[in-house]
Design a protein around this nucleic acid. Structure first.
Lengths: 226, 226
DNA sequence: GTCATCATGTAAGCCGTTACATGATTGC
DNA sequence: GCAATCATGTAACGGCTTACATGATGAC
């Protein structure tokens, strides 16, 4: 779940740990406010697994370093780099990470459903990065989630009716159920948008695949796009 | 958080582990579906701490046991006990637990806010058992939660505006924010009810309450019954 | 020269899960 | 007798948090 967030960010820009946390917090807020205590070990793990690589330890390096290996910096990072009073130093021991090809594969797997987790956070994260998913995989993600919630809602509503809860317990349970219902309605809207978008743009992949294979096959996809 | 749920249930009826899980699942559903792997250790821990005591290991005991020590069983449990084909045996090695005075103290502390947790589940559980709280403590619980959510919502809304997220990420963030806003609105309703109830009943229960509160209040009564 | 912020990391612990082991009772 | 359910427990592990340790850099 953390890996997904990290890889998702690194898919867009090269970053160091501190910045990753910052961006996750301010962009995704409640969805992913992670602590350093889990972030740094996660980065180390990902590096060991070959999913990311440290490209710049811009530390002891003096002013004009020997041909900066990363010329292709996305805007934000470039700003950050030049943010100091003068562009002299790299600020110190940052370890800047870049995602690898292997990492992109991992990312796509996590996004598609490799991770077991079926909780709200996990789904939220996946959806947040859903633009990296093929249209039909995206639809599958939404539909699976919807089915889950519908099932849960059924269980909750069923149980609630029979039992004699007091005001407070009842209120909590009902409000929880309402929230789930809202989630489902939201998903319905998203699904509808996806469907109409799919109809309107059969363009990029083969149209035949979309109609037949797509629905139930999360990994049924060729060539990892990025 | 688990302790709270367990003690809350035991506050009302004497139960064994298996039943506790069952009731938590079917009454509180999403709020507290706990696994045996955490439930049994928790019971053992609570017993060691003196918060609960095992009152009946109704196992090897033959048919008519020596004056059942628990005459005051709430309906449901009594049904369960006689549910077998005949009332002959106690079904075997159940360890039936009863809450102790010390346990009630612990329970009230947990309910009031002793546990650090500020997450939704924890709050939901507390509120579910809020009838055991004094009116002003209940109000405090609601208001604290409300303040928390308001703050969070502020952070999220603030962050969202500035950044350039794609459709999916934006949708997730906005929906999350909406959900929080819904939570706040819900809390507002609850708070209002609490306030008016408090005004109308400075003493114990007043008939006037019935006109405003009654509809949603089956157990509108003071003093911890069990 | 000291304080806030940036930056990386380690260690301990919390709170829960799944999986495993065990066994009694009941229904068929 | 066999499977399903009831019932209790243990072990291993997962994922995250807090707290701690360290240190550079820039602002004033």
């Amino acid at each position: 779940m953390l890996d997904l967030a990290i890889l998702g960010l690194l898919e867009e820009q090269e970053l160091h740990g501190y910045e990753i946390r910052k961006q996750l917090r301010e962009h995704l807020g409640l969805l992913a406010n992670v602590s350093f205590g889990s972030l740094y070990p996660a980065l180390a793990r990902l590096e060991a697994a070959g999913a990311v690589e440290a490209i710049e330890a811009s530390g002891t390096v003096p002013a004009k370093s020997t041909a900066p290996p990363t010329g292709s910096l996305s805007g934000e990072w470039a700003v950050l780099r030049s943010r100091g009073h003068s562009g002299t130093r790299g600020r110190r021991s940052r370890k800047v990470y870049r995602i690898t090809d292997a990492g992109r594969v991992t990312f796509t797997e996590l996004l598609g459903g490799a991770g077991r987790a079926d909780d709200a956070r996990s789904f939220g994260l996946r959806l947040a990065f859903a633009r990296h998913l093929a249209p039909q995989a995206r639809l599958g993600l939404l539909e699976r989630r919807r089915a889950q919630l519908v099932q849960r809602l059924g269980e909750v509503r069923g149980a609630t009716g029979g039992s004699a809860l007091d005001v407070y317990a009842r209120s909590v349970v009902e409000h929880t159920a309402d929230a789930v219902a809202d989630d489902i309605a939201w998903l319905d809207r998203l699904i509808e948008v996806e469907r109409s978008a799919e109809v309107l743009t059969p363009g990029v992949p083969a149209p035949e695949v979309l109609t037949t294979v797509a629905r139930t096959e999360p990994t049924g996809r060729e060539g990892d796009n990025q």
